[in-house]
Design a protein around this nucleic acid. Structure first.
Lengths: 144, 144
DNA sequence: GCCCCACCTGTTACACTATAACATAGCGAA
DNA sequence: TTCGCTATGTTATAGTGTAACAGGTGGGGC
């Protein structure tokens, strides 16, 4: 995953600096969403804690490269599961266990494109965040 | 719109108190998105300015009744255009002029439902926020 | 009438999220 | 070397949202 990120940055002639790389590592370590200030805390464990702005700048870079997504409804960030193919951001957020699934369904994006076009709207960044229950939380909650 | 809201609250036996009603009025006055702290400022123009928590509580109520939606990507709120029929939240956000369009397209919701079901996920609250350019901003930007 | 309960609101303080403005440092090319 | 671009550091502050507890209001049952 990290090597894929490096390959991609080299290809685009952008710099995956040590600091940006550390931020990406912290996000990827967590298999799920992580808040900006928790990233800051994790980075500050050994060395000196970076200022918020430093981490936000790294996050801006990583998002621009499509390596990280922002979950607007959670104010949190998550590593992109399949950074190789371009895609909009579609997420399934389980309100039971908090697990995040990346959806990236072409038919959803197509339906959004059609509906938007019918309104004369040119889509730039479609954002889909679906709250609900994942398979395992659903079965355990079922008898309610 | 306000009378529709009153009707709906009466039907459900919930109270659209003066304070909640004022918050709804402020949101509806603005034909677009408005931030929580701007609502506070508007409410504080004549009388004494309410505490943030008061406004957030009113917003929670209005959202629970489906009279107001939250735009997660903007940290802002907007009056629901068609509160009579139940629907998820789907918005078109123009990054040119800032105008917000409510989409509420059944095929988008259906596509999300299908894709989520394929992942074993039970949808509770689908959120769609599409950034792009509205018809008029698109034509004026075109020659670029 | 009176009490009780449920709901709504007020008050104070605080936590969390994000950016502005300006200074410094590294790195490559002319 | 010097310039220009990008990345980072430093300090301060703006913006968004909640916690915890107290007080007030209104309606139903006795």
């Amino acid at each position: 995953m990290l090597s894929e990120a490096e390959r991609r940055c080299a290809e685009r002639q952008v710099r995956l600096t040590p600091q940006r790389r550390r931020v990406l590592e912290v996000i990827a370590d967590r298999h799920g969403a992580i808040g900006a200030y928790e990233i800051i805390a994790r980075l500050g464990e050994g060395r000196s804690r970076p200022a918020p702005i430093s981490v936000y700048r790294a996050l801006d870079f990583l998002m621009a490269q499509g390596l990280v997504h922002r979950l607007a409804s959670l104010n949190a960030f998550i590593a992109c599961s399949g950074p190789d193919r371009a895609h909009g951001a579609q997420f399934l957020i389980c309100r039971g266990c908090g697990v995040i699934g990346e959806l990236n369904d072409a038919s959803v994006e197509a339906a959004i494109g059609r509906a938007a076009a019918a309104a004369g709207f040119a889509v730039a960044a479609p954002l889909v965040e679906v709250t609900g229950l994942c398979r395992s939380c659903r079965t355990s909650d079922a008898p309610a």
